[in-house]
Simulated assay, not measured.
Amino acid sequence: MDDDPLALRLASTIRARRGGLTDAFATVDGLTAWVRGQDLSPYLDTATFTADERIRVSTVALRQAVRALFAEAVSPHPPSPADSGALPPLPEALALVNSAAAPMHRRLVWSDAPEQHLEVHGDRLAAALANAAVDFFAGPGLPQVRVCPAPRCVLYFVKRHPRQEWCSVACGNRARAARHYHRDRQRGGSDAAEWS
């Protein structure tokens, strides 16, 4: 998961656990911890980043916009069941991502050697995440985006090889176990009907 594109890691901050859905951005501390685990240079020094409630709310909105883009990417297949009813419509999602990506200015400075300087006017975190989304969705990997069909999984993933069906080995094992359990129950039900 660490080698997944940043846009996919952002979308994957909503996960399914035994007790239901978890949201890494449910608290300011959760968002801070997640950001500190990312490389968002040159936009943001994540080691010193601390979220506040305003940043958390705006980041959740941006994440939902990115999840709406993932839902569109897998269409006509159904989107992740985690939040498909709570996603913004595509035009609204695009507008949010584009406005968050826009306020940056790159320039080249030459003193002893050429250096890139990045000026971000506005929310640096939003700019980093939105630009990662633009790069991903406009890039070559988009046709390989899938929604994991494993029971209770709510993740999107990039299909890395032709036989990959699930986002992870654990989801593949869970799906196979569920199929086996379902087959055994069907056999048991038909055997019981024959004996009655």
Rank of each mutant, 00 (worst) to 15 (best):
W110V: 14
W166Q: 04
P143T: 05
A101H: 09
A178M: 05
A127L: 00
G122C: 08
A73N: 04
D123H: 05
D83Y: 07
V66T: 09
A132K: 02
V74L: 04
A101F: 11
V145P: 07
A170P: 10
R176W: 11
C171N: 10
L125K: 01
P162C: 07
H121Q: 12
A193N: 12
E194I: 12
R160N: 10
D191T: 14
E92G: 11
P143V: 06
P78N: 06
N131D: 06
D123M: 00
H121G: 07
A170L: 14
V147L: 00
A95S: 04
A170Q: 08
S80P: 02
P151A: 11
Y156H: 06
P114G: 01
P78H: 10
A177L: 15
S168E: 14
R163P: 01
E119Q: 12
A138T: 14
C148A: 10
A102Y: 12
R124N: 07
L129N: 04
L125Q: 09
H121T: 15
M104Y: 02
S168K: 13
V120C: 09
R152Q: 15
V154E: 13
L125N: 04
N131A: 10
Y156T: 13
P143S: 02
H117V: 12
S190W: 07
C167S: 15
R152A: 15
W110K: 05
P140N: 03
A130K: 03
P114E: 09
V145N: 01
A178K: 15
R174W: 09
W166S: 05
F137E: 03
H180G: 06
A177M: 14
G85D: 10
D191C: 11
H161V: 12
E92A: 08
V97T: 14
A93L: 00
P162E: 08
A102F: 12
F137A: 00
L108G: 00
A82R: 12
